[in-house]
């Protein structure tokens, strides 16, 4: 299987879906002539022309709304946010228009569209450019949320998201674009991963690290570390946060009886809060220890290198959480 970067995987997905379906178009800041702020849309302008790869003004609320209007009238827009940090300006259109349109129109208008871009902490970008935005999006019924952590998932899930008839927020890891991984060759057929399916990234028997997005890679690193101490870690990557693969979560908890949720976001009403609730409601009797969470510290992201390091989840903190649920000293 060819090894390509996360960025190339996304680019392939965009190109393949735009090729497949004329109603798909991409709009956002710097996506066309500049090839994308993170070069995800590189070459698409040449391939598809300015009608389908569209540079917008810096107007997140406006172009998100324009995308919604285009989807209401049968197109399949992909709205790129340069980063999801900036999409907070667009949340009225995401929550009040996109997520609710199908319901409040009594099923008359579905919205086949994707909001995509990077999320999560980067390096020394400080408070406004370095944050995980999942919770803003996952809270409202009517929208789906996808968070790929590997190149293969990035490709397969983006293709599924573009084909989906609901609005999908597709959050990429800002620090993952250069990550390499195996992705099936386009020659070998259409590679699509259905939404709502978690994946066990590593089988294990002693403790489960449940996570999503970029943190999958940290979880795998921790699993490698703990293996040397004879602790067998299972890593469950949720991949999609709405719909949520509850069965997969329950299966791993029933198997290891111990779980840690790892995420980049803040702890307060974070993704982990929902996962812990789900586990205690449905698998309480299987637990041998309380479920712990490892998250970003409950502070805006600091700039200073040492403080930033303290704020972010790291391997040591995940190891410590695993040890606690294993009652290891």
């Amino acid at each position: 299987m060819p090894e390509i970067t996360y960025r190339e995987a996304l680019n392939q997905a965009l190109a393949e879906e735009m090729e497949r379906d004329d109603s798909v178009f991409l709009l956002g800041e710097e996506v066309a002539e500049y090839d994308g702020a993170y070069k995800v849309s590189k070459g698409l302008l040449d391939q598809f022309g300015p009608q389908r790869v569209v540079d917008t003004p810096i107007s997140e609320l406006g172009f998100a709304g324009l995308g919604v209007g285009a989807a209401m009238t049968g197109l399949r827009p992909i709205v790129e946010f340069m980063t999801f940090n900036f999409s907070i300006l667009a949340l009225d259109q995401v929550i009040n228009s996109a997520a609710k349109m199908y319901y409040m129109s009594g099923g008359q208008i579905s919205l086949p569209m994707v909001f995509r871009g990077p999320t999560g902490a980067a390096l020394q970008l400080s408070a406004q450019h370095s944050q995980a935005c999942e919770t803003w999006y996952v809270h409202a019924p009517g929208i789906k949320l996808v968070t790929p952590g590997t190149p293969a998932d990035a490709k397969g899930l983006l293709k599924a998201s573009i084909r989906d008839d609901d609005p999908v927020a597709f959050m990429e890891g800002e620090l993952l674009y250069n990550l390499k991984g195996e992705v099936p060759d386009p020659e070998d057929g259409d590679f699509v991963i259905p939404l709502g399916k978690a994946e066990v990234k590593r089988e294990g028997a002693d403790v489960s690290i449940i996570t999503h997005g970029k943190m999958v890679n940290l979880a795998m690193q921790v699993a490698g570390k703990l293996e040397k101490e004879d602790v067998d870690v299972e890593v469950l990557d949720l991949r999609t946060l709405r719909p949520l693969d509850v069965e997969a979560i329950l299966a791993t908890v029933r198997k290891t009886n111990r779980a840690v949720y790892l995420e980049e976001g803040w702890p307060y009403v974070g993704i982990g809060s929902q996962i812990v609730t789900t586990i205690q409601e449905e698998a309480f009797d299987y637990l041998d220890a309380p479920v712990l969470r490892v998250t970003q510290a409950d502070v805006p992201m600091p700039y200073a290198k040492n403080l930033e390091k303290l704020a972010k989840p790291d391997a040591d903190r995940v190891v410590a959480a695993c040890n606690r649920v294993l009652y290891r000293d």
Binding site: L61, A64, G65, G67, G69, A70, L75
Partner: peptide
């Protein structure tokens, strides 16, 4: 903006 999208 939704109207703009319809125009689009």
């Amino acid at each position: 903006p939704l109207a703009a999208g319809m125009g689009w």
